[in-house]
Amino acid sequence: MTTKDATYNYAIRLGDNALILGHRLSELCSRGPILEEDLALTNVALDMIGRAQALLKYAAELEGKGHTEDDIAYRRAEINYHNHLLIEQPNGDFAHTIARQLYLSVFEYLFFTELEKSKDATLAAIASKTIKEVKYHMQHAIDWTLRLGDGTVESHKRMQKGLNDLYMYTGELFEMDHIDTYLLHQHIAVDTLSLKAKWQSEIEKVLTEATLSLPEDTYMQTGSKKGVHTENLGHILSEMQYLQRAYPDAKW
């Protein structure tokens, strides 16, 4: 494995996280619970698509086969996607969506703060751009967690259920495989393992204030780094890639 190959894989993973979450959130366009939330969730989706574009463009450059970011986004099979399992989980009810956003945005805030120091200039540049946007996403998720958790009996119950249902997908956020370790030694990748305690304490702080509790330790799902996904990703791709598969190179 060369540094270039490893960095390509790393950019694909980060790019897929942004791409698939962007798609998931865009499903809520015109379906937000209130108009302001419709705007908020689609704004977050747009940030994600922008981030995906930057990362997949970089991946295409590293790959060096003349592909564009669109080729990479639309022309891979499920097994070649490496987004976290948490990201592909369905939106569920609004509390579910917020629980996913909370787990993820707190993680991303910690992650991109570290990636900003990467020795890879492109990744560091994208990280420094991203971190500003992630702060907004995180504040949005925290605001709603507090509002729903410390709201009505029903909103509290649903928020806790969202948190409980998704908790088993959070362990994967901190996993390090051989690509991560290889790039960590070269000061390119982030040591995600070291972010776990901080993440947990940040999440706990929010949940306590929201009168919610951190779910109990459970079996953690894993697989995305090997391309093994939950059944949800296939459904996302069948919709997302439909046009490019039915009409390759379509332009309008």
Binding site: E36, E37, L39, A40, N43, V44, L46, D47, Q139, H140
Partner: peptide, 13 residues
């Protein structure tokens, strides 16, 4: 503040 997210990415409502 009505919403942290407005009509474009750079604005709040």
């Amino acid at each position: 503040l009505i919403s942290r997210f407005g009509s474009t990415a750079c604005k709040a409502l």
